[in-house]
Amino acid sequence: MLLLCMVMVEGRSSPNGGGLNVLDFGAVGNGQTDDSQVFGKIMAPSKKNFHSGTKEWLTFDSVNGLIVNGNGDIDGYGSSWWGSCDNGNECSGRPTALKFNNCNYLQVSGVSITNAQHNHISLSNCADVTIFNIKITAPDNTPNTDGIDISHSTRVQIQNSDIGTGDDCIAINTGCSYINITGINCGPGHGISIGSLGEDHSEGIVEEVHVVGCTFTGTQNGARIKTWQGGSGYVRKVSFKDITLYDSMNPILIDQYYCDDKECKNQTSAVSISDVSFIGFTGTSATEAAVQLLCSKSVGCDGILLDRINITTSHKQSTEDKVFSECINAHGTSSGSNIPNVPCLLH
Rank of each mutant, 00 (worst) to 15 (best):
P143Y: 05
Q292V: 00
I254M: 06
R308S: 15
D307I: 09
V7Y: 14
H331I: 04
D86W: 12
N180S: 05
G187I: 06
S84W: 11
Q220V: 10
E288V: 05
T54I: 14
G70D: 09
H118W: 14
G233A: 05
F50Q: 03
G26S: 09
H51D: 14
N115V: 02
T287K: 00
A44C: 04
E320G: 04
D247P: 08
I184N: 10
I243T: 08
Q317M: 11
I243D: 03
S274Q: 07
C85N: 02
I74R: 01
I309Q: 02
C186M: 02
T268L: 12
S36W: 06
Y234F: 09
S193L: 11
I131W: 01
G11K: 03
H120Y: 00
G175M: 03
A270P: 15
G233K: 05
E10H: 13
P45S: 06
T145H: 01
L253C: 04
V299L: 03
N329S: 07
G19R: 10
L58R: 08
T165W: 05
L293H: 02
Y258Q: 06
D275S: 11
C5W: 15
P143H: 07
I42V: 04
L294H: 02
D128K: 13
I279Y: 02
G53F: 08
H118T: 09
D140N: 08
Y105H: 08
D200K: 12
F324S: 06
T244K: 07
C264T: 13
D275F: 14
K55L: 05
Y77K: 09
S325C: 05
S92K: 09
R94C: 06
L58C: 13
N104K: 04
F25K: 15
N21A: 10
G72M: 14
L245R: 02
C186Y: 00
L345K: 01
E208G: 10
Q317E: 12
G183Y: 01
N180Q: 06
Q37E: 11
G166F: 03
S232L: 09
Q256V: 00
S14C: 07
P143C: 06
I74H: 03
D128R: 12
D307W: 05
T142F: 03
S296L: 00
T33S: 08
H118D: 14
Y257N: 08
I205R: 05
Q157L: 13
C295Q: 01
V63Q: 11
D275L: 10
D302T: 12
C327S: 04
L245G: 00
S161M: 11
G191V: 01
G183L: 03
N102R: 10
Q267S: 13
W228R: 04
I181G: 08
M8Q: 15
T227V: 12
I131S: 01
D321G: 02
E263F: 15
G70F: 06
I67H: 14
I328Y: 12
T145W: 00
I42L: 02
